[in-house]
């Protein structure tokens, strides 16, 4: 099976990328010391650098990439549109809004910010879940997402507008830029159950997403429970995206690029795209984060900014190619 080979290749790439991320940093650590630290046998300083700083950061980048890659692939399957991504349903924006609200009112600790992001994502998800049950139209669902996204953006602009001083303005901006710097194992542990729940939803919906490639009417005839599939994907995208935003803030376009790259290798089957797209999403963000650390800029480049700089032109290119074909 080519799928199995693809998945194994991506897992190897992911492990390689995470190890590489541990090797690279402001304090040069040779290979031997990194592996010693990874097994816990190294010098105490090395162990701290690896276990407290580099590994959590690399794992955070990987986790966020997995969540966004999987959400993108699932949403694209459901909406039958290669341009769909977590941002389309407004879930990212609402999650980021939740986080900024907490920051604005000064109640910010790692935990409250993460919980607020998750709450924002789940609120958006719940709203979409209600809409998904009531409407049979995917276009309506997208439009609701666009509305949610715009509203969250407006409230965030309002908060920036009202920010009492430059420091809180910088705090708010940091969140919207998206970064995995200084993430701890605790941040990951908090997000993990939500991410797991989201991925489980996608796994259950995978076969139905394949059938949906033939259109909703045909899928209905094939025995797909359309309503249940919509609910699973919307809930899964809410949970996974909420988890991603709680770790790293808003990072866009991974959810579009990763599925787009793997699709030709799995016969364009939306169900079979899910797993490799998640893994590739993870690999992309780990590599992207290494890039962010290597590029010498006066203040560190944010991962979300880099993702947008590379991802947005690709988005336009995919949209243009799609227009040409149909």
């Amino acid at each position: 099976m080519t799928d199995a080979r693809l998945v194994v290749g991506l897992v190897v790439a992911a492990v390689g990328a995470v190890v590489a991320a541990c090797l690279i940093g402001s304090t040069p650590l040779p290979m031997g010391r990194v592996f010693a630290a990874l097994t816990g046998a190294g010098a105490p300083g090395d162990v701290i650098v690896i276990w407290e700083i580099r590994l959590p950061r690399a794992l955070a980048a990987f986790t966020v990439g997995v969540a966004l890659g999987a959400s993108g692939a699932a949403l694209q399957g459901l909406l039958r549109n290669p341009l769909a991504e977590p941002g389309v349903l407004g879930v990212s924006a609402c999650a980021a809004l939740g986080a900024t609200l907490v920051l604005f009112y000064g109640a910010a600790t790692g935990l409250t910010v993460a919980l607020a992001a998750m709450t924002g994502a789940l609120a958006a998800t719940a709203l979409l879940a209600i809409a998904a049950v009531r409407t049979s139209s995917v276009v309506t669902l997208i439009l609701i997402g666009v509305g949610l996204s715009s509203f969250a953006g407006a409230v965030m602009a309002l908060l920036l507008n009202l920010a009492p001083n430059p420091f809180s303005l910088a705090d708010l901006m940091n969140w919207t830029l998206g970064s995995v710097a200084n993430r701890s194992v605790n941040d990951l542990a908090l997000a993990a159950p939500f991410l797991a729940g989201g991925l489980l939803c996608f796994a259950v919906a995978a076969r139905s997403l394949s059938a949906l490639a033939l259109g909703e009417e045909t899928a209905f005839g094939l025995g797909v429970d359309l309503r249940r599939t919509r609910l699973l994907v919307v809930a899964g995208a809410g949970l996974a995206t909420g988890a991603a935003v709680s770790i790293a803030g808003a990072i866009g376009f991974v959810g579009i690029v990763a599925p787009h790259l793997v699709r030709p290798f799995v016969g364009h089957d939306p169900g079979r795209t899910l797993l490799p797209a998640s893994l590739l999403g993870g690999v992309i963000l780990v590599l992207g984060d290494i890039g962010v650390r290597l590029i010498p800029t006066p203040s560190e480049l944010r991962l979300g900014v880099m993702a947008a700089l590379i991802g947005a032109p690709i988005f336009v290119w995919i949209a243009a190619m799609r227009g040409r074909r149909s």
Binding site: L214, F220, R263, G267, H268, P270
Partner: peptide, 20 residues
């Protein structure tokens, strides 16, 4: 059920469509 035929959303192969 054979609804009015529309092209698939993705360029999936003939054999995969039949398998569905």
């Amino acid at each position: 059920y054979l609804p009015q035929i529309r092209s698939a959303a993705w360029p999936i192969r003939v054999i995969d469509i039949v398998a569905l």
